[in-house]
Each structure stands twice: as C-alpha cells, then as structure tokens.
Design a protein around this nucleic acid. Structure first.
Ligand SMILES: [Zn+2]
Ligand SMILES: [Zn+2]
Ligand SMILES: [Zn+2]
Ligand SMILES: [Zn+2]
Lengths: 133, 133
DNA sequence: TTGTGGAATGTTATATTATAACGTAAAGAG
DNA sequence: CTCTTTACGTTATAATATAACATTCCACAA
C-alpha cells in the first residue's frame, strides 16, 4: 500500500471520528479542503471506496453518508441503527439476525453476498425525551 | 394537461410491473414522457413518494431505484433480495427477522420506526449458472 | 351557478451525489 | 536509475433529488 493513500485515509478517519454523526462525501470534502484546497470529489470518493473495502467505514445507503466502523474492522455485515432526531448511529454485529436473514432469502436459492441492514427510529435518549413532552 | 394523482400513479405502476427489474426515477420519467412529453422530475418524485407511502412500491435504498410491492400493500417492513447478475428482486415478509432485529437494536433503548433490509447476491437461477461455468 | 380552498401539477432553477476519462506524479522493486 | 503500479489531479459531466412559486383542476358549498 502506498504511503500517500494511507495519509489521506487517516485524515478522513480523524474527521469522521470527530464528527458527531454520519457525514456526506461532500461535507467531508469541504473539511478536507481546509488542509488541501484543491481536493476534488473524485479523490474523496476513491478514498471512501478504499476505506469501505477495508471495512474501516460503513456507508449508510439510506442516507448517502458514511460512519466509521465501531467494531473490529473484520466483522461480518452489521446492523446500523440511525436516530432520525439526533443523528447518532449505533452499530451492532448480530450473527443470529444474519443467519435468519440468509435462511429467509435462501428459500428460493438466493445466495447472499452483501447485506444492507439499516434501522431508522429514535435512540434511547431521544425516545425518552419525546415521552416527556 | 396533467394526469391527476391516481391516474399518473396507475400508469407508473403499469410501467413498473412491465419492467423486468428495479427502475430509476429518471428511467421512469423517460417512459412517462412518451405519453406526456412535458413531465418533470418533480412530478415523478412526488408520485413516487405517494406510492411509497401507500406501500404500493418500495425504494431500493442501495440502488436508488424502485420496485412494485409483491405482497399485500399493508404488510410490515420486508426483505428485498436483489440479484446483482440479472437484476431481479424478490420480496419477503418475515416477522421473525424483524422481531430479532428490534431486539438487537432495542438493547440500548432504540425505538425502530423504519427498516431497510436489502440483500445483494445471486438469485437461485444465476447462482446455478455460475456453478456450471 | 359560481366562488373558493386544497391538492396536484407545471415550471424553472438549483442542490446533491457520483463517475468518466485521461493525464501526471509519487513510491517501491529490482 | 528505470520500470511498474497505484494514487492523485483535473476537467467535465452524469445521475439523483429538491426548492420555490405559479397555475390548474376539482370537489363542494354558498
Ligand atoms: Zn463495522
Ligand atoms: Zn437520538
Ligand atoms: Zn411490499
Ligand atoms: Zn439472477
């Protein structure tokens, strides 16, 4: 792996870790431009693709945004729960759910390669606050 | 001039039923323009939103595309399995999976409102064909 | 009948997300 | 030092989606 790639990716991870929630590719680009004014979308998307392949970040398909992995980056498909109120995301690895899912889709011979499991709703904190009102 | 709500939506459903797989909003727009050359993206997106709210179609978040519902349109969140080879989509309703999912995300008090469950892979047919080669 | 309010649509413009195509530069191997 | 590979730069454009406001249609009531 080239040193150049890792440096950009590390900076992107830092930004994403410091960000309170999911970040879009273009918001990330804007932040990156403070250290490199000429950064282009292409570069960001390439690095995002690499980080995603490595499992270091996950793409939220239902939001066109990205979050850092919250677990060991070699885990299987995870469940991402997204609070629509505060924007927080929690990642859960649950082999049981995956197994059941594969059973269901496998009934007609479907062979699963990639799972997208995203749950929208309210996190514990926001849900409690709703109840008060 | 324009087709009022239900008529447009019915035409969109027909197009989607005749289409072999998921269709993008703009591909749908292009087909609609054969009967109404001035149709605009806004109109299509509005009708897609309405059909989605009614449960008559589902949006594939991981593909930016839409498919007709394959079940009674009042069912709970379903599992959409997408063949990356032939583009076919199968819809499964599986309460057990949902229950398990809610249990997992509920561990920290998360309250689920909407589930996105999309599985990419190979359908039975395409998987068999792969094996032959 | 005619007016009127709300929903759907038209119209125009723009925002947001993502990739294509091709050239250049950097790092590592030998 | 050359070769190769990969990352990166640059420019352009494609693809997806929404904002903002005007207009039209239609149900329904005055
Ligand atoms: Zn992860
Ligand atoms: Zn929250
Ligand atoms: Zn359905
Ligand atoms: Zn297939």
């Amino acid at each position: 792996m080239g040193q150049r790639g890792e440096q950009l990716q590390a900076e992107m991870l830092t930004i994403m870790d410091q960000n309170s929630g999911p970040i879009s590719a273009y918001d990330l680009l804007e932040k990156l431009r403070s250290s490199n004014a000429k950064m282009a979308p292409t570069t960001v998307y390439r690095a995002l693709a690499s980080l995603t392949e490595q499992g270091r970040i996950h793409r939220l398909e239902s939001m066109n945004a990205y979050v850092p992995c919250q677990h060991d980056h070699h885990h299987q498909s995870s469940i991402l729960s997204i609070c629509d109120d505060c924007g927080s995301v929690e990642e859960n690895v649950a082999p049981d759910v995956l197994n059941q899912l594969e059973t269901v889709v496998g009934e007609n011979g479907f062979s699963a390669k990639r799972h997208v499991i995203e749950v929208h709703g309210l996190c514990g904190t926001c849900d409690s606050e709703e109840a008060v009102q």
